[in-house]
Design a protein around this nucleic acid. Structure first.
Lengths: 187, 187
DNA sequence: TTGATCATGTAACGTGTTACATGATTAA
DNA sequence: TTAATCATGTAACACGTTACATGATCAA
């Protein structure tokens, strides 16, 4: 039930249309909470039924009509209430780990190719994140203070992606060399 | 559609009942792919309809009857085919990150308490994993070679949990001190 | 006698994904 | 004229979670 709260967090910053929310779910908050336009439009409809949001219709001459949503007092209450209830830690659920677990059942070259592709994807993501991070540090202190919280989530993303690449490199090295790990991880 | 393949990976090792598979989803493979008994029994039924598994009923005197499932030739084919198609990287989807992102909307003490609880949970998980890892290293080389692949997934778990604790400690330190991060992560 | 473990299932509900559907503007 | 962007939605299906449901054995 968190898409609702993610939307409320976004609307608490500023009113937005469904379309604009979808953009935000592709960047920024989208690094750790994705949502498609189908989900967003449906959720906004539900939330409007629950009176958590209201909207104003802008009839534009050139463009199709646009609904600009904003949070209601009830929405604000739902948000603060959500903060009071601890969230469940998300479950790790990665098919690639199932494949590594059952690696003996696959042709090694096939699995290695997939691991390499995945490594490349994570490396690319690290680069993206590092660029965003550099942009954050290019700002003056007041701006850095303003965007501290989003930046903290970016730090999580960077750590996660780096950890992923380290593990993948290690697995590739071991599978390709046929060696056994010499010692516990990180020791 | 990976629960199916996770079950096939488990059955490729040895035949098992639904109940026994559920146990495995609570440990071992359960570290990165969870499934409840409801899911497992339903999936086995579907897979039987697709002829990916067969079962033999053991009518026990004392216990309720037990179906022991094993993989069919078609099941084996479905598995090798699955290995040929790269898996999509799982999406990160963590409500706690949404909370940190919108931390300004919560009472700091409330969020900090939740972060602390989460940190404790991750630290406990690291301990569990470290115990399993120690057990692996207590084995002789042939056994370590035999269990290399599951152990590689355990290494991923350890890395992930450690990364989580490091990030949480960092966030707690920054939120409690009111400081801004001095430099990019890990530099 | 109470709870844990063995052993199996169905049903309702919530959420997420994919496909389908429309229609205007603007840049290549 | 083709693709991308702006802007909105519905519908079918897949998957996961929670609740409901039964019934025997065994240890405390």
């Amino acid at each position: 039930m968190s898409l609702k709260h993610a939307i409320l967090v976004l609307l608490s910053d500023q009113p937005a249309s469904g379309y604009e929310l979808v953009q935000e779910f592709r960047s920024g908050i989208g690094n750790f909470w994705k949502a498609t336009h189908q989900q967003v439009y449906l959720e906004l409809k539900k939330m409007h039924g629950e009176k958590l949001v209201r909207y104003e219709v802008e009839t534009q001459d050139t463009r199709p009509e646009k609904k600009t949503y904003s949070m209601t007092a009830a929405g604000r209450r739902a948000l603060t209430d959500w903060f009071l209830h601890p969230a469940k830690p998300p479950k790790v659920r990665d098919p690639l780990l199932v494949k590594v677990y059952g690696a003996a059942l696959a042709r090694p070259a096939v699995l290695i190719a997939e691991l390499r592709a995945r490594l490349a994807a994570h490396e690319k993501q690290v680069e993206n994140y590092r660029r965003m991070e550099q942009h954050y540090f290019d700002q003056d202190e007041p701006v850095r203070r303003q965007y501290l919280h989003p930046y903290l989530t970016l730090r999580r993303g960077i750590r996660y992606e780096c950890e992923s690449t380290e593990w993948l490199r290690e697995v590739l090295q071991l599978l390709e060399s046929g060696e056994l790990p010499a010692k516990p991880v990180g020791r």
